[in-house]
Design a protein around this nucleic acid. Structure first.
Length: 372
RNA sequence: CCGGAGAUGGCGGAGCGGUCAAUCGCACCUGACUGUAAAUCAGGCGUCCUAAGGACUUCGGAGGUUCAAAUCCUUCUCUCCGGA
């Protein structure tokens, strides 16, 4: 079976797809209208942040996240597992956040309030949001942890997935158009554990299988410190563990060339903060030959630009001659540089629009080039 | 004219005998960013040497005291505040 799209309550999502992150209920610096015009076909939101900043019951009462956002395309909700994980990582709150069979208890750094997120409550929240694709609460593996502890992480990860699935079925028993549900394969850089995690989750049966952790040699979830950069081998390996009729979602991936590689080895869905965050920080993606540094995968290449640097002070050219986004058709590099240097909202917006447009175009290129 | 305060690197502003090429902030230069608690963070920022490190010239001007001065003394120039 050739997977060309995912059917959702809000239309078919063409694959492979890139979804920007609207973690706090917003793609930072832009409107959802901007997002749509940038060619984005789906977005990701986060259970934990939405629950804490907005409240999922409020969203439910309002009529769901799509209505609230004014966004009529697919929304994928992340479970909150990664966010609790990142809290546990932070030194400030070390010790306050705990993982048990029940779920994860943690302290909200903003309010100091204690909270408990369980596999069940995560599903309830995501159900309240009426997301098109939901995610099970997962338990990422910490770096520098013993084998016994890593195995324990996988045990809990599978346990939570099982309970998430049960709750998901219960919540959707009378629903005609059910959302899709994805489980997260963990295991860090341990090939054996990845295999165990994948097999256990496959037995429970989900629509989507996600790559969990951060696939970087230097990331906190990895023990290997010798090499740097994207962990191609692990992505290829884990993709091979998932049957080809299942959708494959590489969470947190990645740079355009990383995504191209992952598509080539079978991954369908992607999300990352890079285009939006980098835009705000002044790192912009442009066509090959128009920037400072070229990166590529096979015959797909692109450049990056540090727009805030002095070299663009008198650059009258559009950011990218091959792009027809609002930034590239209305302002010069010099002016965009100025806007970002003074942290002007208009600059953050234009830069974000451009990077999102670049990612949309990049996904088009991947579809044309890598998938026949 | 008298009395008082002060002049520090692009700017603001510490330092008040050695550990000062001089805290810090801003500005400036460069880099990082991968399921966003990141409109954030890191490094650089007198000159020269590839770097560890070293050499040289700096704290309004000119003299002086001292082994040693951005720091003390004399004087000049300028700025600010108060009084005629």
């Amino acid at each position: 079976m050739e997977k060309t799209y995912i059917p959702t309550k809000h239309g078919n999502l063409t694959l492979p797809a890139f979804m920007p992150d609207a973690t706090y209920g917003s793609i930072k610096a832009v409107s959802f209208n901007d997002v749509q015009k940038a060619g984005v076909e789906a977005i990701v939101t986060t259970t934990l942040h939405i629950e804490q900043k907005i409240g999922s019951l409020y969203i439910k009462e309002f009529g769901g996240l799509h209505k609230f956002f004014g966004w009529n395309k697919p929304i994928l909700s992340d479970s909150g597992g990664w966010q609790v994980f990142s809290l546990i990582q932070s030194k400030r709150d070390k010790g306050k956040n705990k993982i048990s069979d029940l779920g994860c208890s943690f302290v909200d750094p903003a309010t100091g309030n204690h909270s408990l997120l369980t596999p069940e409550s995560s599903q309830v929240i995501q159900n309240n949001l009426s997301a098109d694709i939901v995610t099970v609460l997962d338990n990422p593996i910490l770096g520098n942890v013993s084998l016994a502890e890593r195995k324990e992480c996988i045990r809990i990860n599978t346990l939570w997935a099982k309970r998430s699935k049960a709750k998901f079925i219960e919540l959707n028993s009378n629903v005609k158009e059910k959302p899709l549900i994805g489980a997260v394969i963990q295991g860090g850089n341990d090939y054996e554990l990845r295999k165990i995690s994948a097999d256990e989750l496959l037995e429970i049966d989900f629509d989507i299988y996600n790559f969990g952790g951060m696939p970087l040699h230097t990331g906190v979830t990895w023990l290997t410190e010798s090499k740097k950069g994207f962990y191609h081998e692990m992505l290829e390996y884990v993709s091979g563990l998932i049957p080809s009729n299942k959708y494959k979602y590489a969470m947190g991936v990645g740079q355009p060339d990383d995504i191209a590689f992952c598509v080539d080895v079978g991954w369908d869905l992607f999300d990352t903060v890079l285009p939006t965050r980098n835009a705000r920080h002044g790192l912009l993606y442009v066509s090959e030959g128009q920037g400072e540094q070229t990166k590529s995968y096979k015959n797909l290449a692109y450049d990056t630009i540090h727009i805030k640097t002095e070299r663009y002070k008198f650059d009258e050219k559009p950011l990218d001659e091959n792009c027809n986004c609002e930034a590239c058709t209305t302002v010069s590099r010099a002016y965009l540089r100025h806007l970002l240097r003074i942290n002007e909202a208009a600059g953050l917006r234009l830069a974000t629009i451009h990077n999102l447009t670049f990612y949309s175009n990049w996904m088009d290129k991947i579809r044309k080039t890598l998938q026949k």
